[in-house]
Design a protein around this nucleic acid. Structure first.
Lengths: 80, 80
DNA sequence: GCAATTTGTTATGTAAACACAACAATTATT
DNA sequence: AATAATTGTTGTGTTTACATAACAAATTGC
């Protein structure tokens, strides 16, 4: 078991204008950790994933998934 | 950051009559690992949590949460 | 009853998540 | 242009998720 996990942390951060440092502080991890996650250098623990999803008010699957997320432009084509 | 994570793996397993061994095989981990998770001996990786949720066809938050899950009897009192 | 399956326990090893530090590169602000 | 803020990179150390094994206890099936 070692599947790639895609994430949209950077997108959700950009959406509300939040720096890595700020997000790191909110979920109580090292700022570097957020960078490592965004670049896919390593996968988050469930604990961290739950905390991040909780902060953005969405489900874990909205931020983390086995399947790659469609680009913004792709998403705008089909409604929603 | 080190919050307790509650889970309902055993419930979802029981619901469909699935042994730990079987679930372990499905999500490709050691059978002991499922036992460790159910007893709260350790928290799953996001990868494993996603795989388990995916198999049961529910959201990660339906199986794993920071807040304890209500008991079945508790749940039956208030509809749904 | 016995046998098989499921679950629980303990122990040891490894890989990877995360902490922390120090600094380079890039981008934004004035 | 200079300063500050954000992001990227590299390295070292600790903790813990998970693998594997071996076996005890409990449960289920015949």
């Amino acid at each position: 078991m070692s599947r790639v996990i895609h994430n949209r942390i950077a997108m959700f951060r950009a959406d509300v204008g939040l720096s890595r440092r700020d997000l790191a502080e909110i979920v109580a991890v090292n700022p570097q950790t957020i960078g490592f996650l965004e670049r896919g250098d390593y996968k988050p623990s469930l604990e961290l994933a739950l905390a991040i999803a909780e902060h953005f008010g969405v489900a874990v699957e909205d931020i983390f998934a086995f399947q790659p997320f469609p680009s913004l432009s792709e998403q705008l084509k089909r409604g929603s």
